[in-house]
Amino acid sequence: MIALLIRDVRLAVRAGGGFGLGLAFFLLVAVLVPLGVGPDGGTLARIAPGILWVGALLACLLSLDRLFALDYEDGSLDLLVTAPIPLEGVVAVKALAHWMVTGLPLTLVAPVLGVLLNLPAPGYFWLVVSLALGTPALSVIGAFGAALTVGLKRGGLLLSLLVLPLYVPTLIFGAEAVKRGAEGMATGTPLALLAAITAGAAALLPFAAAAAIRINLR
């Protein structure tokens, strides 16, 4: 299991693309939005929590289609299914690896981008906390979507269509927590709900994803 985690992280770092692309995309969103919306600090401060969360979500989505597709194409997925580790574990570990190379770096650079978007000072802490709690859910839900579309041509587009509605609760609670934090309000409720979604998704979705992979391979 740990070998699989190390392999996936190493592959992502060596191939470069997946690792840097999400971060670059996130940066672009944070640069383009003020250019589109205008430089008014008040407006930017108000929309910053939502923009940062939407940006992180889309950046996460960007590398999902390769989560299982690469292993499917080179035959590794067949070999992993016949290997002596449960496929549910493979899915969970690959989702964790995806989070380590997308969600985690996104969480760490988000405060810098918060400066660009004029995020109010009390919001930074909650931005990092909510992304740290919420981005694992994005990776696990994405892994489920990637498992559904693994054998398909043009699966990437379908993957976005399947995954985006599933991302709604995570996005709402995550952005709400930052918004409330930035306004100095209590953030306990949305953060607790966000953590609940992450915990539930991480516990249950690997089973659904593993079932989908088995169906797609047969």
Partner: peptide, 19 residues
């Protein structure tokens, strides 16, 4: 063959040995 192009020969084998 289930090989990863960006891993070395030994790394590819070591991965499957660990699995």
């Amino acid at each position: 063959d289930g090989l990863k192009a960006t891993l070395t020969v030994a790394e590819n084998l070591a991965f499957w040995a660990a699995i």
